[in-house]
Design a binder for these strands. Structure first.
Lengths: 219, 219
DNA sequence: CAGGAAAAATGCGCGCACGCAAGTTTACGT
DNA sequence: ACGTAAACTTGCGTGCGCGCATTTTTCCTG
């Protein structure tokens, strides 16, 4: 899988990235997200501002990364942990729920801060796309037939998209009815259930697709 | 459907946006995408640079928008055109294929330019998410039951994600095209499979999900 | 254990995104 | 018809993203 020698070079790189994550989140919590500049983050991490955005494309990305990194790192294992015994759709769903609810104290506090600022919310939502690669890998691992690779890619992308929809609905309580569509005021804006429920509800419509893909590999 | 008076204010707004689109694409084709500044686009459209990014968040977005606007405008009609007689999954698939292949000459030429520059390619891929709202509307139009709204949202998001995967695979390997000197030094992007095939292949795994949702509405 | 190539970090500079506080235009009520 | 409020545009200033050229660090090979 990974390279047997982690590479000394690669380790420092990861250390720097982690330092930037940590610094970004800490400073954001300390002084408020708007009161922190890239220069401050870079200084706290011991690198130049120019180096900073060799790692992160935007200021928001660095802050959010501290929260999302764990999930994109653990989602694959969480799916794999639920072995071949359970339905693939259930494995993915429960793995997602686990990764987004069984979260540390620090992440929970950071989320509270993220949901307040629009720019950070958007960055957080965009970050959900980062679970797609690891998801693709584990799904492809269970779809061994010829077209499995392509199918896994699509299913992973769809699952990530569904998660995004769930998260959007979850942190959207304070919003007027200014949807893009014309007669979009179609009544029930019931939303704002618990996050696990939102996730399960969003992933449920995709279950038949997962089932079909999984069924094809058995024959 | 829409507001009976289009609104005089709204008309000027759309005209300005269209002018910016047109100017951005024209200048990009004329002088090359890197040789055009926001100031030039704004001047060509008759507005100030500051006004420019009240309409577009990035320079690339404006250029790409000239190509993608038609699709996000027509995708809903394309699905609706295929009436309730055909399977929802097929309607969506064929509508997507139609929108991304039956394209004008100008768009085709612009695409050639977009695929060359990495920044424009990324912007183009990101723009596929814009078909999600109209898709949500038409799908919800055919899913009339209670949970149809949520399901439509997830299915639309998944379909958009699948389209993105297809497009990624389509314009994948532009390696060694580092001849930025002359005009039209065009290295033809070698594609793996025709675009319609890629789209159909990517959307196919989602068909069972569409079927299940559609089947639920009939009883 | 050197020497040299590849890769990352840094300094510098330019153009862009966006907040803020005017000025200007459109829409609507009495 | 006129005045007022809301929306859109504009000028200005600041911080940021990133390309380019240079210096420093890391890794490999003879």
């Amino acid at each position: 899988m990974t390279s047997p020698p982690p590479g000394l070079r690669e380790r420092k790189k990861r250390a720097t990235r982690e330092a930037l994550r940590e610094a970004a989140l800490r400073l954001a919590v300390e002084h408020g997200p708007d009161r922190v500049r890239v220069e401050d983050i870079a200084e706290a991490a011991g690198v130049s501002p120019r180096t900073y955005n060799n790692y992160f494309a935007s200021r928001e990305q660095a802050i959010v990364s501290a929260v999302t990194a764990d999930r994109e790192a653990g989602i694959a294992a969480a799916v794999a942990a639920r072995g071949a015994g359970v339905r693939l759709a259930d494995a993915v769903t429960e793995a997602v729920v686990e990764q987004y609810t069984h979260t540390g104290e620090r992440a929970q506090r950071a989320l509270l801060l993220i949901t307040a600022r629009t720019a950070l919310r958007d960055a957080f939502l965009d970050a959900t796309a980062d679970i797609e690669p690891p998801l693709t890998e584990v799904i492809a691992d269970r779809l061994r037939d010829a077209a499995g690779a392509h199918t896994a890619r699509v299913l992973a992308a769809s699952a990530a998209a569904a998660v995004r929809v769930a998260l959007e609905g979850w942190l959207r309580p304070p919003e007027g009815a200014e949807a893009a569509g014309g007669l979009g005021a179609g009544g029930l804006v019931v939303t704002s259930g618990s996050l696990p429920d939102q996730l399960r509800e969003a992933l449920a419509p995709l279950a038949p697709a997962f089932d079909a893909a999984e069924r094809r590999t058995r024959r």
